[in-house]
Amino acid sequence: MDITGNTLFIPGATSGIGLALALALKDRGNTVIVGGRRTELLEKIAAAHPGLGTVRIDTTDPASIQAAAKDVIARYPELNVLVTMAGVMRVEDWHAPDTFLESAENVVTTNVLGPIRLIAAFVEHLRTRPDATIVTVSSGLAFTPLKVTPSYNASKAAIHMLSESLRLQLADTSVKVVELVPPSVQTDLLPGQAENEHAMPLGEFVAEVMTLLETRPDDREIQVERVKFLRYGEARGDYDQVVATLNGTDPH
Rank of each mutant, 00 (worst) to 15 (best):
A69E: 13
A63I: 02
T99W: 03
R37Q: 07
M89L: 12
A47F: 09
I73L: 09
E78M: 14
L41V: 15
G29A: 01
W94I: 12
L52S: 03
L52C: 07
H125W: 02
G35S: 11
L79S: 14
V83Y: 15
V81Q: 06
R127E: 11
I45G: 08
E78I: 12
R127P: 02
T54C: 14
E43A: 15
L126V: 06
I65F: 07
G140C: 07
A48V: 01
Y76F: 15
A47M: 01
E78S: 14
E102V: 10
P77T: 10
K70H: 13
V123H: 03
A104P: 04
R28D: 01
A46P: 00
W94H: 07
K70A: 15
K44D: 12
N80H: 06
G36I: 06
R38Y: 07
L52A: 07
A24N: 00
R90T: 12
R37Y: 13
P130K: 12
N106C: 04
Y76V: 11
T133H: 03
T128M: 14
S15Q: 15
A142C: 04
D61A: 00
I57L: 10
R28C: 08
A48R: 13
I116P: 01
V88E: 11
G51S: 13
L101S: 11
E102P: 02
K26P: 05
K70I: 03
A47C: 04
V83N: 07
R38A: 06
F143E: 14
I57K: 09
P50N: 06
V55G: 05
A121E: 02
D61N: 08
E105H: 09
A121R: 02
V137E: 01
T133D: 03
V112P: 02
D93Q: 08
A132K: 00
T133Y: 00
N80R: 10
R28G: 07
I65H: 04
E92L: 06
L101E: 15
V135N: 11
V32A: 13
I65R: 08
M89K: 15
V108S: 11
T59H: 10
T128K: 11
T31F: 08
